[in-house]
Design a protein around this nucleic acid. Structure first.
Lengths: 177, 177
DNA sequence: ACGCAATACCTCGATGAGGATGTATGGTCG
DNA sequence: CGACCATACATCCTCATCGAGGTATTGCGT
């Protein structure tokens, strides 16, 4: 997820670590803060894999900056990760949002639609949060107000996202014609 | 998060690992599957910390079962974790849902309300997902349909949860009078 | 007779993530 | 003029997590 965010932001423009960190913090930081000690090793991994290069520049205000720029391989890799996301990126809202944030870079509307359809299929599957023995407990049976809250919120999110997914799929398919 | 789920389910009834795993999978597995190789070490950690004990029983159908039962310390620890959640448990929806699923075990309505109020405070803070340079980009300015989707979905979830939180807080405070 | 799925548990190695801390510099504020 | 904050990067250690694999039993289908 972190690597996807790094590739995504650098796809748009070269950045140095500090600014990149702020961008990532804005995107996902309110939910899960990004520790510097996670970001810098991630940058190194991507550099080692040949997906990005660093150029050291004198710091504008403080220490020297390492301006990060995607290589052509890095650009290809981002598009690959967007087109073929892992199951976690489809199911976990946090990761899914990161993917959505950069899905525009996939350019081909059919490929974008295919990704949205995977999310749609996931949301359309029925899920039960609680069981009593082996029997799934239905929403109306839950008497705990907190568990009812989970179901209420999950249903609201799901409804909103399904509506958006269907709308967006229609307009993406409209483009192809 | 995993440990909280284990403590939470065992608080309700002693279970053996396999059933526990199915319960956890129902609660969070559609979003983030729990690997067995994560669950069993987690059980061991909790056992080592004195929060649960095992009793080996002959297996009903297959291998012998290890029935897990919380110790008194384990029960105290669950209530402590529910009453004093870390910031991640408040902000990350996945972790928050796990916490909510067991919040009823906190019994004291005032303590439950205090936890809900922390979530409320978090949701009431304004957040901006995207920046252009240093300037936060407002929702209306986003032209990318996928980024608009993020904002649409996030807003719908937030609205639903805020409504539920306020309702539930009112009824929890009603209890105290 | 054979395989396969389900039950039930476990270990190991790699790695990603997180907390704490270190090392600079330049600007602001009291 | 000293404290402090923001910028900018980095490392260390620890631990949770994951994938891959291992062990063993029961029972069903074919």
């Amino acid at each position: 997820m972190l690597e996807l965010a790094i590739l995504g932001f650098l796809y748009e423009a070269p950045l140095h670590g500090y600014v990149l960190r702020r961008h990532i913090a804005a995107l996902t930081g309110h939910v899960r803060p990004v520790a510097e000690s996670t970001l810098y090793p991630a940058i190194k991994r991507l550099e080692k894999a040949g997906l990005l290069v660093r150029a050291t520049e004198p710091g504008a205000v403080a220490a020297p900056r390492h301006v990060l720029r995607l290589t052509e391989e890095g650009r290809v890799e981002l598009r690959r990760r967007l087109a073929e996301p892992g199951q976690r990126e489809i199911t976990d809202e946090n990761q899914w949002f990161v993917l959505l944030a950069f899905l525009r870079h996939l350019e081909d509307p059919a490929a974008q639609a295919a990704v949205l359809r995977r999310r749609l299929a996931f949301l359309e599957e029925p899920t039960s949060f609680f069981y009593e023995g082996d029997r799934p407990v239905r929403a109306e049976e839950v008497d705990d107000p907190f568990r009812q809250g989970i179901l209420t919120i999950a249903r609201a999110t799901s409804r909103a996202e399904l509506a958006w997914l269907r709308d967006t799929l229609v307009s993406l398919e409209g483009v192809g014609r």
